[in-house]
Design a protein around this nucleic acid. Structure first.
Lengths: 122, 122
DNA sequence: CCCAACTACCTTGCATTACAATATAGCTGC
DNA sequence: GCAGCTATATTGTAATGCAAGGTAGTTGGG
């Protein structure tokens, strides 16, 4: 189970990624994230997050009826959302590279197998 | 520059990793992290973090004089710290894999080139 | 001699964000 | 009717990175 603190900041970008290309609703997003391997993402996490994104204009919502339950609120990426998603990818890669380098030197073995030696001891 | 929220949870494990194998002091750790590609890690971040780790027994400190400035407080991993470091590596890999899968499907292109298709559309 | 700049440590308070807990509501099948 | 699933929402709490500010030692320039 991934610790909650490690999801901070990452989860928001991942939600944008899930919305990339297709409109989806909150409950569905939560299920999907679980499918990708982030653990369970509870309602108390996903709905405030979506409201946040909507409020700042990264996504827009539209209600539609459902055959199996209450109304659904579908979200779609805006242009701003697209930009933020690209930003997220850049930042994530930056972080992942830093951790990879660190793991390489400390023997942690990341999942990447490049040899990016950084830092020569003092 | 990596957003501060994205470092949450990760930074702590990375400090443990930096201490793996060799004793180091706060200021040095901060510099080293910058060298690995995490941006600048300010004192207001690093010192409280080290105190936290020390308080719960993941690291132990010992003072030593320095030739170029005030006394230095060197930290070393304890057995608990070793275990926590291993835990961190596991969790980080779990998260990285989830993000990789997500990026694969949404066209974000992670730095890993495996084909781990997850989730078939509804 | 003083002051800037660097090393090196520390603390207080703030902002962000994941999540537990809880509530509401519609649908399905027993 | 009631359990269980779908689906949305809110309130409050905990964790943690960081800005801002403080202390102290050393070194070199003017």
């Amino acid at each position: 189970m991934i610790p909650t603190q490690m999801l901070k900041g990452t989860l928001e970008g991942c939600v944008l990624a899930v919305l990339s290309g297709e409109e989806r609703y909150g409950y569905e997003i939560s299920q999907r994230l679980e499918g990708y391997g982030f653990g369970r993402v509870p309602e108390g996490t996903i709905y405030p997050l979506l409201r946040r994104l909507e409020k700042r204009g990264a996504i827009i919502a539209s209600y539609r009826a459902s055959a199996e339950g209450p109304q659904r609120k579908y979200y779609a990426l805006t242009d701003l959302g697209q930009k933020e998603l690209a930003e997220f990818f850049r930042h994530y890669r930056e972080l992942a590279q830093a951790v990879d380098r660190l793991m390489q030197e400390t023997g942690g073995q990341s999942h990447a197998e490049k040899d990016t030696a950084a830092f020569k001891g003092k």
